[in-house]
Amino acid sequence: MRALTRGVLGVVGFLLVWELFGRSGLVSAEYLPPPSVVLGELGKLLGDQLFLRDVLATVLALLITVGVSVGIAVPLGLILGSVPAVRYATRAVVEFLRPIPSVAMIPLAIVFLGIGPETKIVLAVYAAIWPILFNTIYALDELDPLLVETAKVFGTGRVRVLFSVALPSALPFVLTGIRLAATTSLVVLVSVELLAGGSGGLGQFIMLARSGAGRMDLVLAGTVVAGVIGYLVNEGLERAQRRWVGWNAATGGRA
């Protein structure tokens, strides 16, 4: 309870400093509007259909991205994690591809795919695959050999072992990977919306608010909403992790 009070005080303190700073005239209110103005704008925006449509566009893209990444990265991770030869052979390729920042492909992707939503989703998927892939591989490495032995003793086949033993015990790590992937995708999605436009979304809203009328209050309101989405995604996935794999809190659950 005390911690909660202090946390609230911390936020209120921050807003107060910002408010005073914004009203002090040190920085033009046009550049850094005080939070009272931003929150007021935010309130209006939440009733604005167009804005809500932008928010929805980003959230939908995020959901699709995470779904597609999981669909690609988890099976891939299971293969690479359980067949050492394949993993060894592809290591150099993976190590080469991973560090390429997906945003660097924005110019190429725009020419190639246009500026529709598929562009940002493809780029975000590219970024989101890695954390899930690596966590899945790592989870299989950490797999308790005793569990596998036990399963084999009972005559369980290789594929069955994979699905009934390996996957459940890898789940905490995979969930951590998904959480990281979701956060990363949000960053990439907002970046692409910001830089490429065309496909709607929060990023585009923010960019238009800035370049059109120079409405910093709208820019900041949009940023706050982006932060709330980021918070909800992270918090939600963390809760899911804690609830579903609470039994493994000591190892994989911690992140």
Binding site: R2, A3, R6, G7, V8, L9, G10, V11, G13, F14, L186, V187, L189, V190, S191, L194, L202, G203, I206, G222, T223, V224, A226, G227, V228, I229, G230, Y231, N234
Partner: peptide, 18 residues
Amino acid sequence: EFAGPLLTFMRSIPPPAL
């Protein structure tokens, strides 16, 4: 305790939005 929630929110903001 004072800074925790603020930090949690700040880091949730996708940096490109800023």
